[in-house]
């Protein structure tokens, strides 16, 4: 599933929303070590950056701090040079994570992932559950936070432990008006790394029967669905189907093979769906994972809807 270039995930969000905490946890997570993933991190950081940077630096060698990042007024654009340097590493990283500044629009920063040697995996926006309602009423910063959420693929809702029930409810309903992408709760940076990286080796079957015990809006646990095959009705068919995924589907990644059409790479991060057709691919393998909230019936139905009509596709992949 290497695709075309180093996948890039942008973890944005306003000042203090918890971006660095999330990235630090991601790096510290055994996931990365166990699987020897080399994750490079670009931090374009402010404020208490010293603490942030040293925290991260202890956890991986592949840290680059932008000494001179991207500014509209500064044309010597550190970003392009830095990305070029990373792409040219003798052993390029498996994934690049970028933490932009609190006022940057993470989706704009993500556009750098279209440079040669990279591909955009997704844009996650950290939102402080406790502070959001106040932040949005602040004329100085409200509009930029709103824009971050609107344009992002996925919301990482942090500090729910600090928010009162009432505040949390306000935050959730406000977010729902800003994005129809998934909202994933993240406490102290605890998050299934697959959400950000889209890679996993411990695929567990999606258990459609798991009861909704009220934990559904908890961190995703690690509910994964592995689909051996799905019907392939062209790139557009796949695209439409993925776009119709219920909001609790946070991540889907894999490839599906069709004897007639070749293979399709599939990548979904929140609202972002990308299907890449590789007609000449000889990798006659279908492997496809879905991360979603446990026990979400809508997900079951969404998947079932597809498998019902999957005979042809099953055959084509069975035959390979």
């Amino acid at each position: 599933m290497s695709g075309r270039g180093i996948p890039v995930t942008v973890v944005g969000g306003y000042l203090g929303a918890g971006k660095t905490t999330i990235i630090s946890e991601l790096l510290a997570h055994s996931f990365a070590e166990e699987h020897q993933l080399r994750i490079a991190v670009l931090v374009n950081d402010f404020g208490d950056v010293n603490i942030d940077a040293s925290r991260i630096a202890r956890q991986t060698d592949d840290i680059i701090e932008l000494a001179n990042g991207c500014v509209c007024c500064s044309l010597i654009d550190g970003f392009v040079e830095t990305l070029d340097a990373i792409a040219a590493w003798p052993e390029p990283p498996d994934h690049l994570v970028i933490e932009p500044s609190g006022v940057a629009d993470p989706m704009s920063v993500a556009q750098y992932a279209y440079l040669p040697g990279f591909q955009l995996a997704g844009v996650a926006v950290a939102v402080d559950a406790d502070a959001l309602p106040t932040q949005l009423t602040d004329k100085r910063i409200g509009p930029s936070i709103r824009r971050q959420v609107e344009r992002g693929d996925l919301v990482l809702l942090t500090k729910t432990d600090l928010a009162s029930e009432a505040t949390l409810a306000t935050t959730r309903s406000t977010l729902a008006t800003l994005t129809d992408g998934p909202i994933v709760e993240v406490t102290e940076g605890q998050l299934d790394p697959a959400v950000l990286l889209g890679l996993t080796t411990t695929l567990t079957e999606f258990d459609a029967t798991e009861p909704d015990d009220g934990t559904a809006h908890h961190p995703l646990a690690s509910t994964l669905a592995t689909l051996k095959s799905i019907p392939v009705d062209g790139k557009e068919g796949l695209q439409t189907w993925l776009e119709s995924a219920p909001p609790s589907v946070v991540r889907a990644k894999g490839s599906v093979f069709d004897r007639a059409e070749g293979s399709f790479d599939i990548d979904l991060v929140g609202n972002r769906v990308r299907v890449t057709h590789r007609p000449s691919s000889r990798e006659a393998v279908s492997a496809f994972i879905v991360l979603a909230a446990p026990g979400d019936v809508a997900v079951t139905e969404w998947l079932a809807d597809r498998s019902l009509r999957s005979d042809e596709a099953s055959q084509s992949s069975t035959g390979s």
Partner: peptide
């Protein structure tokens, strides 16, 4: 340029 990186450093 002080907008980026570690201020104390």
């Amino acid at each position: 340029q002080g907008n980026f990186g570690a201020s104390d450093e």
